[in-house]
């Protein structure tokens, strides 16, 4: 075993470091919670981190890559490469259970899987208000403050809120 192999941190430890890097747009959840880190692997003394984008045009993608590099360098990893993976395409089903709870606590209704847009007509589904828990909510717009969110309103507490849409 050469020196580089001995000094390289375990993959599980690297995952835990990545789990501390917040999403730049929704800082209460981590990049691991979001499900965009697809693989962490050593190729000799080079660390390969595979990342998949959420939306094609998400402006946070560049910042996310920068934060991954910065975060890992702070832990002493010098040789790393980020690999972009498009397929399988990111799905909100990859958001962790903890991530969903954190989203709700933050005021964003988590995605309801199985409700992604299809070629057919709009299908109504119930989104609970993240503030008061009421199921009496209405969609204002399918497109909210970022590409990944829709704009809803609670008809009980009357607060507007973001819904993280299923994709």
């Amino acid at each position: 075993m050469d020196a580089a192999t001995i000094s390289r941190p375990a993959v599980a430890e690297i995952w835990s470091w990545l789990g501390e890097i917040p999403d730049p747009e929704i800082p209460v959840i981590s990049l691991v919670d979001l499900g965009i880190i697809r693989d962490v692997a050593w190729a000799g003394d080079l660390l390969e981190v595979t990342v998949t984008p959420t939306y094609s045009g998400c402006p946070a993608t560049g910042v996310i890559n920068f934060e991954i590099e910065r975060g890992l360098r702070e832990h002493g990893i010098e040789k790393l490469v980020l690999k972009r993976q498009l397929s399988p395409a990111w799905t909100t089903a990859w958001i962790s259970t903890e991530g969903r709870a954190k989203l709700r606590d933050y005021g964003i209704a988590p995605p309801i899987e199985g409700t992604a847009a299809c070629a057919g007509a709009l299908r109504p589904f119930d989104v609970s208000c993240p503030r008061c828990g009421s199921q009496r909510t209405e969609r204002i717009s399918q497109f909210g403050s970022t590409p990944c969110k829709a704009h809803f309103r609670c008809t009980d507490c009357l607060e507007p809120f973001d819904y993280f849409k299923s994709i």
Binding site: Y55, S56, A89, C118, Q142, F143
Partner: peptide, 19 residues
Amino acid sequence: DIAEKASKEVAYHLERSAD
């Protein structure tokens, strides 16, 4: 791969524009 990624976004475009 690009088509798989883009189709998920475009499904939302079509849903909105048709509506």
